[in-house]
Design a protein around this nucleic acid. Sequence first.
DNA 1: TAGATTGTTAATCGATTAACAATC
DNA 2: TAGATTGTTAATCGATTAACAATC
Lengths: 220, 220
Amino acid sequence: MTDETADPKSIPQGVVERLPHYLNALLHLRREGVQTVSSARLSTLAEVNAAQIRRDLTYFGSFGKRGVGYDVAMLIDRIQRILGSDHAHRIAILGAGNLGSAIASYDGLRARGFTVAGLFDNDPRRIGQRVADLIVRDVRDLPRLVAEQGIRFGVIAVPPESAQEAADRLCEAGIRVILNYSPAYVSVPPDVTIHNTDPVRELLHTLYYLSRTEDVAVHS
Amino acid sequence: MTDETADPKSIPQGVVERLPHYLNALLHLRREGVQTVSSARLSTLAEVNAAQIRRDLTYFGSFGKRGVGYDVAMLIDRIQRILGSDHAHRIAILGAGNLGSAIASYDGLRARGFTVAGLFDNDPRRIGQRVADLIVRDVRDLPRLVAEQGIRFGVIAVPPESAQEAADRLCEAGIRVILNYSPAYVSVPPDVTIHNTDPVRELLHTLYYLSRTEDVAVHS
DNA sequence: TAGATTGTTAATCGATTAACAATC
DNA sequence: TAGATTGTTAATCGATTAACAATC
């Protein structure tokens, strides 16, 4: 029963980053009706070395049967528990533009244990509008909702020039973890965790490989 | 002049992943009017060890002045050249829903050397609609546009159930690199590079840290 | 029992960092 | 010259992988 109590400091970041990939692959397998999977099969789906998958899992316990493999449903359950996505986490999204709306209406959220507790904006033209099955709320209601529902998770999906203001609002409201989708630098108090994502940073990284591929194409 | 001709195989992936962060920080500094920056200063902005920044840059050449630091404008230029973002790369986006629209109307794209050559959809209700300064096109026009403009870069921003079809269309049209924003597994011919991103995978990763933080909060 | 596949060790590989001589 | 900061080496650290005994 000490499975999930491993010292977080001792878990390599790479492991934590790969777990969602395993989960993705396992959910896919379950939809296909697969009940048991070997690390080799999982390896091709998740594009991770089979030995590494087994190694990664041992950080949290031993979930497989030698000679048989892993029970898909059981492993899904374990990984979800490790990631904390087994019980619904309520999130607040700031910004009801295209990006915020895309995140709010994304089916995969619910499938992975997230609930959008509120989608907020400060533009009167957007407040009251319907996005997926949500009504856009006034950002001034944020503190109340966070307090009432004990929301700890916030997403910044506003234009870069408003990102710091959005972060301030989230922190004041009592949010514990912020995922920032804007490219702006924002600062938060030390007790708040912030992760920055930028959809285009990803493109730039990919671009590097593109330009190398092109070189090869030109020379061949 | 052999600066950017390093064997791509010899560049650690981590280096390529950090370059866009440096670029982000440098663009920020340039906006602030800063002309020279030390690796120490860059270190705090990009949240990367100063020694590592210097190390990373030496893979491509030596761009700094001892005792002085790096010229901001020059380093921006160098990194852009390394990443291949110094000349406009045209991209085609499949899917004009919220996610596709968010990407298409994202200012940061232009700032980093990307041009959205076309935003495509197969829904007649969306075709012809305006998104940012673009008109949504019929996906059947994709092959023609790709051929005419020599587009090599495609983005999948469609619902997961249509992702494979979108990938097939992009490959047939002659796209070389695909960035897949849907959570679906798609397969492509070996000569096409595909990168998978999923905005929620990022959330899951963050969630792991959240649940640890909560533990601490509970115990303290 | 024979075949399969895990859990785990030990070896390899690569990335990070501290330290400092070079040099602006 | 003195101070600062790079470029680069060498040491450390950590992650990946192959291999195989354990065992289903």
